[in-house]
Amino acid sequence: MKIERLSQNKIKIFLTFDDLLERGIQKDDMWREIPKVHELFSEMMDQAYNELGFDASGPLAVEVFALPAQGMVVIVTRGKSESQQSADTEEDQDEDVYEMEVTLEHSDVIMYAFRDFEDVISVSHQLLQAKLTEDGRLYSYRGKWILTFDPVNSDQGRTAALIALLAEYGDATSLTTAVLEEYGKLIMASGAVAEICTHFQS
């Protein structure tokens, strides 16, 4: 579990699938009202307080992004939204109960980060040789190269093979597409694998 402060009232938590499995939570459980998920959220908030001094008292807006190869990104924003203010009741709330407004988004985009461009070249040649894909987008972001791929037409076998190859050379990243598009630099908008193989030898 990695926690990062985005602003004074906003944090980002990255959960790997191992983090979820260790707690007996399936990916689909994240949008169910079950005790395990509440325990996980309490644990995340305790860690956020200990590491960053983030106080999670009061209403919280929680956004959960499911990423296919990487895990889950949870964005927690502290403060009242207008809908929460109008929905407030006079019931006494336990201090340990978090008022949460949860929104869930599922992203099927596969995203891997590479430290060296040589690794990007190597994995591109492997992907092309295995006839897995010649597509993909290439970004530069904070000194790393990021390759992103749209899902392979619900073909789970090919998707698993694609992820396995990418994982040999790079690291799964907790970035969301929105962050990458806003702060990253787009190098190749489409056909990145074919383009790289055309211009660079492995």
Rank of each mutant, 00 (worst) to 15 (best):
I3F: 07
I3C: 06
I3Q: 05
E4Q: 09
R5C: 12
S7C: 06
Q8K: 14
I11G: 05
I13C: 04
F14C: 11
D19T: 04
E22T: 06
Q26P: 09
R32H: 14
I34G: 10
P35K: 08
H38F: 12
S42H: 15
E43Q: 12
M44K: 04
M45V: 05
M45Q: 03
Q47L: 10
Q47G: 09
N50R: 12
E51G: 06
F54S: 01
G58K: 00
P59V: 05
V62R: 14
F65Y: 11
F65V: 10
A66S: 12
L67I: 04
A69E: 12
G71S: 09
M72S: 14
I75K: 01
V76T: 01
T77A: 12
K80Y: 15
K80D: 15
K80M: 14
Q84V: 07
Q85S: 15
S86C: 15
S86D: 14
T89H: 05
E90C: 11
E90D: 15
E91G: 10
E95K: 02
V97W: 01
V97K: 04
Y98L: 06
Y98H: 09
V102C: 11
H106C: 15
D108E: 15
I110E: 06
R115W: 12
S122G: 11
V123T: 05
A130C: 02
L132D: 00
L138K: 01
R142K: 15
G143I: 00
W145T: 00
I146V: 13
D150H: 08
V152W: 04
S154H: 15
Q156M: 13
T159C: 07
A160S: 09
A161R: 10
I163D: 04
L166G: 01
Y169S: 02
Y169I: 06
D171T: 15
D171E: 14
D171G: 13
T177H: 14
A178F: 07
A178C: 08
L180C: 06
E181C: 07
E181N: 06
K185C: 13
L186I: 02
M188R: 03
M188H: 02
S190W: 08
G191C: 04
A192C: 01
A194D: 03
E195C: 02
C197N: 04
S202T: 09
S202H: 09
